[in-house]
Design a protein around this nucleic acid. Structure first.
Lengths: 344, 344
DNA sequence: TCAGCTTTCCAAAGCGCTTCGAACGACGCC
DNA sequence: GGCGTCGTTCGAAGCGCTTTGGAAAGCTGA
C-alpha cells in the first residue's frame, strides 16, 4: 500500500492524504481522522526512501564502530551505549545505521555517509587525543556528537563525557585516605582521550599529597580481562608491590581480581581495587552491595542523552553546540579497605 | 555532486554516466574510464535513497535488538556478532540498520521494515522455542536468516546454529569421564531455543550413563555474572553439592568462579567448570591455556557467515534456504579435573 | 448579489537515480 | 545504393513521496 493507492481508496488526492498524515493544518479535522483511520487499517507507512528523497532528510543516524585491528577487539561498551541511543532514536523516529570499519578507514566512511546522504548525522565513538575526525566532520559538514571529548581540539562541538579526571582523582583520594601509598593504575590505551584524563586525575591526586608516582605501577592497554590479569599478576610479583589498584573497567577488574586471588590474597583486605563501572547491563557490579568499589556512570544513559543532543543539533542547526559533563558516582563496595600494615 | 552535475561536467547524458558507473556493457571502454576517473576526482557517490527508490532495493539489512524489559539487559554477544556481520555487509555494499526494541514490540518493527521498505532483509536474533517471528516474517514476506533455530517450527528457513545439543552432550560426557556424578547445569533461559537444546544434550549424556538428573542442580536465568554467582553459591551450600558445573557462557562462568573461590574451593581441583565460550573479543578465555574448559564457537564468525547467507538469499530469492550447523570445539582448560574423592 | 476571505482540496513539479525505447552513425553485405 | 546490424549514446518516464501554487467551494458582510 502506497500513498497513491491510499489516496485512491479514500477518494482524495495524494496531497491531502500526505498533509493529513503529517499534521499540516490545512486539512479538516474530519478528513484527517478518516485518513488516519484508513491508513491504520491498511498499516500504511510512507516509504522511507521516497520520503527521504522528497524531504532531503534521511531520518537516520550513523554510528561507526571502529574495530581495533590489533586484537579484533570490539568495544563491549557499545552494546549498552547503542541500546540507550536506540531508545532515543525510536522515540524520535530515527533509524540507526551501523558501520563496522577497520581502525584507519573511518574517514572514508564519513565521506561516504555525506556523499550518499545516507544519514543526517553521526555519533563519534572513542575520541582520541586531538582526534582528526572532528575537524574532518566539520569540514565535510556532517552534524555530529562526540561520546567523550578530544583534548587539543579547539573550537566548539557537541559532546557528552564523564568527568574522568575528577572521577579518578576522587577514587585516588579515596584510596589515599585509606592509607594506601602504592597505588597502581591499570588504564586503558592512553592515546584515548578518556584514559588520558583518568591518568591526569590519578597523577593530580597523588601530587596533591606528595605521593610519588611510580612508573612501575602504570599500565595501559586494551581493556580486556586478560590484560587486567597480566598487569596485576606482574605488579603483584614486584618486590615492592602495590596495595591498591585503580582499574579502567569492570572487565579489566575481573582480570585483576583473578590475579589477586591466584596470588592467595583477599580482595578488600590485602588488596584494594577501585574500578570504573559503566553500569553494563550484563556485568552488573553486584545487586546489593557492589562487588567492586567503583566510580560509576551509566553508559546506556550516556547513549540516550547524547542521541537526544544530536537530534537536537540536527533539528536546530543554528544553535550553539551543547555539551554535558557527567560526574561519576563513587560507590563503595567490598573490594576496598584500609591499607594493610607493612608486615607483608 | 549528483549524477546530473557529473553528467554535465562530462558532457554526457545521465544515462550513459549511470551505465558507466554500474558496469553495463553498452558503453565504450574509453568513456567508462573517463567517467570513472572524473567520478573519483569529485568523490561522487550515488545518493542512497534515490538509488534505492529507482531500483526498489534498499541495500540495507535490519537487526532487531530485543531488550529484555525485565533487567534492561542487552545481550553482550551482539557486539561481536554484529562486528562479524558488519564485515560481510561492508564487503557487499550493504548497510546495517539496528532497531532496539522492547521485548514484545518486535512484530511491529518487522511490519514497519516491510511497509517502509527500509531494509531488504533481517537477521533474527535469539530465537525461542516455536518462535512466532518466523511465521510472521514468512507472512509479511521479508527475507530473513535466523541466528539459531526454533524447535517446533516446521518449514524450511535459512539458519545458522551451533550444535548446542552435541556440544553440551560432549561436555557432560567429558565431566562424566572425569568421574563427576553430581553435575550442575547453570543454563540460560530455557524458553530460548539454544538453552533448551543445551539442556537436552546434558540430559541425554546423563541418561546414557544412567546418572540421575537432580532437579536441585538445574538453574535457568538471564546470563549475567550475578546469576552465575548466586546459582553456584546456592548449590555449593547444598548438603550434597555438585562437583562440577556446566555453564552457559563465560560471563556466567565468571560468577560461578567467584562463588567457588569465595567458598574457599579451588577451580579445577575441588570444583570443575565447563563453560560455553562464544569467543568474545573482550573476554577471551585465556590466550595460552584456556582459563575455562569450554565448548567454543566464535559468534563473530557466525555473524559473518550468517550475513553472507542472508545476502545470498536476498540476491537469489528462488533458491532453497541454506542452513549451517556448526560443531563447537571442546577445549580443555584449567577449570576441570578429576572428581574429588568422597572425602569432602 | 457580489467582492473578499477562509477553508479545503488538487495537479503537477521535483528530489536523484535507473532503465526502456529510440536515435544516430558507421559498417558490411547483397 | 539500400538495408539490416552493431555499438554507442540520449530523452524521458517512473520509483513514492512532499510541497508549491492555485482553484473550487463555502462563508461573511455590505
Amino acid at each position: 500500500m502506497n500513498l497513491k493507492e491510499l489516496a485512491q481508496t479514500l477518494g482524495l488526492s495524494q496531497t491531502t492524504v500526505s498533509r493529513a498524515l503529517n499534521g499540516y493544518p490545512e486539512v479538516s479535522e474530519a478528513t484527517r481522522q478518516r485518513v488516519l483511520q484508513v491508513a491504520r487499517e491498511h498499516n500504511y507507512r510512507p516509504n522511507t526512501r521516497a520520503k527521504g528523497l522528497a524531504t532531503g532528510l534521511s531520518m537516520a543516524i550513523g554510528h561507526v564502530i571502529p574495530m581495533a585491528t590489533k586484537h579484533e577487539m570490539v568495544n563491549p561498551v557499545f552494546a549498552d551505549f547503542i541500546a540507550g541511543a536506540g531508545e532515543a532514536y525510536a522515540r524520535h523516529g530515527y533509524d540507526m545505521v551501523l558501520s563496522v570499519v577497520e581502525d584507519g578507514d573511518e574517514a572514508q566512511v564519513y565521506r561516504d555517509f555525506k556523499a550518499r546522504a545516507s544519514v543526517d548525522g553521526v555519533i563519534l565513538h572513542g575520541p582520541r587525543m586531538d582526534d582528526p575526525r572532528i575537524p574532518l566532520l566539520d569540514e565535510i559538514g556532517l552534524p555530529f556528537a562526540v561520546h567523550g571529548r578530544a583534548s587539543g581540539h579547539t573550537g566548539a562541538y557537541t559532546w557528552l563525557d564523564v568527568n574522568n579526571r575528577s572521577a579518578f582523582r576522587r577514587a585516588t583520594d579515596f584510596l589515599l585516605d585509606l592509607g594506601h601509598r602504592r597505588i597502581a593504575l591499570v588504564n586503558g590505551l592512553e592515546f584515548m582521550d578518556f584514559a588520558h584524563r583518568r591518568r591526569a586525575g590519578f597523577a593530580e591526586a597523588l601530587a596533591a599529597r606528595k605521593v610519588p608516582l611510580d612508573p612501575a605501577l602504570l599500565r595501559s592497554d586494551e581493556m580486556t580481562e586478560g590484560y587486567g590479569y597480566r598487569a596485576a599478576a606482574d605488579m603483584l610479583a614486584l618486590s615492592n608491590p602495590p596495595t591498591a589498584f585503580l582499574v579502567a573497567s569492570i572487565i579489566v577488574g575481573l582480570g585483576v581480581r583473578r590475579a589477586v586471588e591466584e596470588a592467595g590474597l583477599v580482595l578488600g583486605r590485602d588488596i584494594s581495587v577501585v574500578i570504573h563501572d559503566d553500569a553494563l547491563s550484563y556485568l552488573q557490579n553486584g545487586t546489593d552491595v557492589p562487588i567492586f568499589t567503583a566510580t560509576r556512570s551509566s553508559v546506556r544513559d550516556a547513549g540516550r542523552r547524547l542521541a537526544e543532543m544530536l537530534i537536537d543539533k540536527i533539528t536546530n542547526p543554528g544553535a550553539a553546540p551543547k555539551t554535558a559533563l557527567l560526574e561519576a558516582e563513587l560507590m563503595v563496595g567490598r573490594s576496598t579497605g584500609p591499607a594493610p600494615q607493612r608486615t607483608r
